[in-house]
Nucleic acid binder design. Structure first.
Lengths: 150, 150
DNA sequence: CTAAACGTTAGAGTGCGCTCGAAGTCAAAT
DNA sequence: ATTTGACTTCGAGCGCACTCTAACGTTTAG
């Protein structure tokens, strides 16, 4: 195999920040709290990010973007550090998260439905100039009198 | 029309909390910050919630559950208080929110895809007992050597 | 030689959305 | 008469995920 020293291309924290769309502050923060172990340093003690590091960061970003709390991400990274013998646990963790995200999406869609219905009611009001008492569209109010109209 | 006094059924804050799944604390908080104007009081100064109030709360909850920031909700409530002459603005606000929520759902789905792919990779590892170098499934790492495996 | 540009650390601060605590009022139950 | 319990206000506190500051070190350009 080939490995005579650091033939591997690495990038600075600033470049990594650009690549990942995180701030350098956040990259350091993630490292501090254990989400990014094994970030190499150069002779001046400055961080050098490898392609693998970036790959790891990108998946962490996806986990965050889907609402995984930092605490669970820390657990996930711990499992990563345990190597193949923790693959099953890692999978279980991700599957639990998948379930949570799916539930979240369903909740968003359901609530969005109701909001869209409300938009429709506003359209009607704008067109007819007043509230067409079409009460089955709105479970309450909006077809009502003065108080607490929605 | 019928309205001889308070023939309208109202409920206490505790009951409203149960109905809405918010805490009484949160109901008071929402009122304080202007999300719930016009909550009536009884002779002892205690809050009494009408069905219309509950209706309003329920839609506020849907807005929050879809990620609308409190600040925008305050604006929405202001528009509500202006009555029909602000219907168009209200609709615009909700339509902007609809757009944001749709974008959010798409983002969740996209990221979830990537996570599910990773779950698939873990399944493979569990089955074959090692990493089948099938690099097109994983844009990086996981099919790699020791460092920063994901 | 100095200044700018970039990095480092430890720790403090921020913004959001609640959540709670303290001190007080009131009414019904004992 | 007093206790219980639900309510009130106001302000402080909390958890999360950053985000920034201060003080300092190193490298490069003029």
């Amino acid at each position: 195999m080939s490995s005579r020293a650091s033939r591997i291309k690495t990038i600075s924290i600033k470049e990594a920040a650009v690549e990942t769309n995180l701030s350098a502050h956040t990259l350091r923060y993630y490292e501090r709290i254990g989400l990014l172990p094994n970030i190499a340093r150069d002779s001046n003690g400055q961080r050098r990010y490898t392609a693998d590091n970036l790959g790891a960061i990108l998946i962490l970003i996806k986990l965050r973007a889907t609402g995984m709390p930092i605490g669970i991400m820390q657990r996930f990274v711990q499992l990563l550090e345990m190597g193949d013998k923790a693959v099953a646990e890692r999978r279980a963790l991700l599957e639990a998260h998948e379930k949570a995200v799916r539930a979240n999406i369903v909740e968003l869609e359901t609530n969005l439905e109701a909001i869209i219905t409300k938009i429709g009611i506003y359209k009607d009001i704008e067109e007819t100039g007043s509230k067409t008492t079409c009460s089955f569209l709105s479970p309450r109010a909006e077809t009502r009198a003065k108080t607490s109209e929605v």
